[in-house]
C-alpha cells in the first residue's frame, strides 16, 4: 500500500484543496420574498454552521481516495465542492483535469425522449463529441443491457434501468478524475458487480478517484488512501486501512 504523503509530492497534484470552508444557514431552506427584500445583510442573526472548515489536502494523479465519516459530517459537501457544483465560502479548490461525476446520475435524462436520444444528449452535456458518442454507442448500450428498449421513452424505464443507462454513459467519459457517490447502491447485485469491474478498469488506467461510501469492503477494495471527516473537519488523512480502523473504533465507542 502506498501511503499518501502530500508533503513529499514532487509532481503537481491533480487536485489541491486549500483551507476550504462551507457555511450553511440553519434556518428554513427557502425564504419568502419579504425576508429577502426586507432583511439586509446587517440585521442577520440566523444561526449558521460550518459544514466543512479548514479542510486541506492534495491528490496526485492516479490516487484513489475514500471519504469516510458518519452521515452529515461533510462527505457529500466535499464531493460537491470537488465536482464544482458547490462553491466554497473560504479557501480554494484547484483541479488540473476534467471530472466525470458519477453522482446524481439520471439528472441529465429527459423522460419524454427515447433512450437513444438521451444517450446523445447526456453524453453531449458532459462534453463528449458526437463522433465519439457514435463510436462508443454500442458499448454504452450493451453495458446498460437496454438494446431492445433503445426507442422507448426514458419515462417507461424502471429505476434500475435508468441508473444502468446513466452509469453506462457517464462511465464512458474520458476524464482523469472520477467522483463516485453511493448511487450504485440502487442497482441489483449483478449490475453492481459490473459497475465495480468498470471502476476497476478505470482505476487501472491511472485515473484519480474520489469515492464516498459507508461500505468498508468497497472502500478497501478501491481506495489506497482515506480521508476521515468529522464535524466538517478533516481529522484523518492516511492509508485507507488505518482510516477504517480509526473509524470503526470511534463508531463502536
Amino acid at each position: 500500500m502506498v501511503a499518501a504523503a502530500p508533503e513529499q509530492a514532487d509532481s503537481t497534484p491533480i487536485i489541491s484543496v486549500a483551507g476550504i470552508g462551507v457555511e450553511f444557514d440553519l434556518q428554513s431552506r427557502h425564504r419568502g420574498m419579504r425576508e429577502l427584500l426586507i432583511k439586509g445583510r446587517a440585521g442577520r442573526v440566523t444561526p449558521r454552521f460550518w459544514a466543512l472548515r479548514d479542510v486541506s489536502f492534495e491528490v496526485q494523479a492516479g490516487e484513489s481516495i475514500g471519504v469516510v465519516g458518519r452521515n452529515g459530517q461533510g462527505k457529500s459537501t466535499l464531493l460537491k465542492i470537488v465536482a464544482g457544483v458547490m462553491l466554497p465560502d473560504e479557501g480554494s479548490v484547484t483541479l488540473r483535469g476534467g471530472v466525470a461525476p458519477l453522482i446524481e446520475l439520471t439528472g441529465g435524462f429527459v423522460p419524454d425522449l427515447t433512450a437513444r436520444d438521451n444517450i446523445y444528449l447526456a453524453a453531449g452535456l458532459h462534453g463528449m463529441k458526437r463522433s465519439v458518442i457514435d463510436a462508443k454507442f454500442d458499448e454504452i448500450v450493451d453495458f446498460a443491457e437496454i438494446r431492445e428498449f433503445l426507442d422507448t421513452p426514458f419515462r417507461h424505464f424502471s429505476s434500475g434501468m435508468r441508473v444502468r443507462l446513466a452509469f453506462s454513459v457517464v462511465s464512458q467519459l474520458d476524464e482523469p478524475i472520477l467522483l463516485v457517490d453511493e448511487v450504485l447502491a440502487v442497482g441489483d447485485r449483478a449490475f453492481r458487480d459490473k459497475c465495480y469491474e468498470r471502476i476497476d478498469e478505470m482505476l487501472a488506467e491511472r485515473r484519480t478517484m474520489f469515492f464516498v461510501s459507508h461500505n468498508a469492503r468497497d472502500l478497501r477494495r478501491f481506495c489506497s488512501r482515506g480521508l476521515y471527516l468529522k464535524g466538517g473537519r478533516l481529522i484523518g488523512d492516511a492509508p485507507i486501512r488505518e482510516i477504517l480502523k480509526k473509524y470503526a473504533q470511534e463508531t463502536d465507542e
Binding site: G84, P88, S92, T94, R96, G98, V99, H126, G127, E175
Partner: peptide, 11 residues
C-alpha cells in the same frame, strides 16, 4: 474540453 477543470473559490 473538461467539465470542471480549473480553480474555484469564493473570489
Amino acid at each position: 474540453g473538461d467539465s470542471a477543470a480549473g480553480s474555484r473559490s469564493r473570489i
